[in-house]
């Protein structure tokens, strides 16, 4: 029974909570269990799960019912009649999408219908065969996998991507570490990308996508390998970006995600 608070505290630390705060939360949680004359395990369930649940709850907005939706801002991305062909084969055609600042758009559809291709077109890495794309200059892309250098640590990635955006190394690193904390992740100093778990590597990917404070974020199923807690953190982060006036386009196959987005583009339907 005495293991529960220490396991809880350890998990909080792992999630990036400051040591003093983790200690305080662990103490209080035990006391709260004592209020109802029960063990923490009985009241709250397994320590590590409750730690993540608590962090997700604390990061949530004050009251879900009155969450103020910000006025949609200026158009940050617009696709008009966009199509893509590889040789003779049409991947998709006549795609229209307008995303404003403060909005989230989801791209859904079956495997192989061109979701990732469309996202790359939005980024500018792939050219559309037809149609017109307009978008803001500052854009961040988080690919489904890859996109990191296996032999570099998280902080070295921050330095590298920061340099690409014109940031000095010190500022790039502190920004990266700060953004990581919001995903309940404290990057290890010596851990290289190839030694990270799939979920952690995706967190790195996310941080790299937003390091240069882009106005438009393009996310390609970026939560592969996330556990439940990280998945919640991820969506909270998406909504935080949205509420800060940015536009987010996210490729997803989870219907569950669609209830909170502003636009759903179904590529499979066409």
């Amino acid at each position: 029974m005495s293991d529960w608070p220490s396991a809880f505290e350890a998990e909080l630390l792992r999630l990036g909570v400051q040591p003093g705060r983790a200690r305080r939360l662990a103490d209080e949680t035990s006391q709260q269990a004592a209020e109802s004359a029960a063990t923490p395990g009985d009241v709250f369930g397994p320590a590590h799960l409750y730690a993540r649940h608590l962090m997700a709850e604390l990061n949530a907005p004050a009251a879900a019912t009155t969450r103020t939706r910000f006025e949609a801002g200026p158009v940050l991305l617009s696709l008009t009649g966009v199509g893509k062909k590889y040789r003779r084969q049409t991947v998709f055609q006549d795609v229209n999408l307008t995303v404003r600042g403060g909005e989230v758009a989801a791209i859904v559809g079956a495997n192989g219908c061109g979701k990732s291709t469309l996202l790359r077109i939005c980024a500018g890495l792939t050219r559309p065969t037809s149609g017109e794309v307009r978008r803001v200059r500052r854009v961040g892309l988080v690919p489904q996998d890859g996109g990191t250098a296996g032999w570099l640590t998280a902080e070295e990635h921050f330095t590298l991507f920061g340099a690409a955006a014109g940031m000095v190394p010190g500022r790039a690193r502190s920004t990266g570490v700060h953004l990581a904390t919001r995903l309940a992740w404290r990057p290890g100093r010596k851990q290289r990308a190839q030694q990270m778990s799939g979920g952690t590597r995706q967190k790195l990917n996310l941080v790299l996508g937003e390091l240069h404070a882009p106005d438009l974020l393009l996310l390609d199923e970026p939560y592969q390998g996330f556990d439940q807690g990280a998945y919640l953190d991820f969506w909270q982060q998406v909504f935080a970006w949205r509420d800060a006036g940015r536009a987010i386009v996210v490729v997803t196959h989870l219907l569950h995600d669609l209830q909170n987005v502003d636009h759903v583009l179904d590529l499979g339907e066409r």
Binding site: G124, L125, L141, G147
Partner: peptide
């Protein structure tokens, strides 16, 4: 994998 992202970042 990294290069296109570095390009996009600037």
């Amino acid at each position: 994998g990294v290069d296109p992202r570095l390009r996009l970042t600037g």
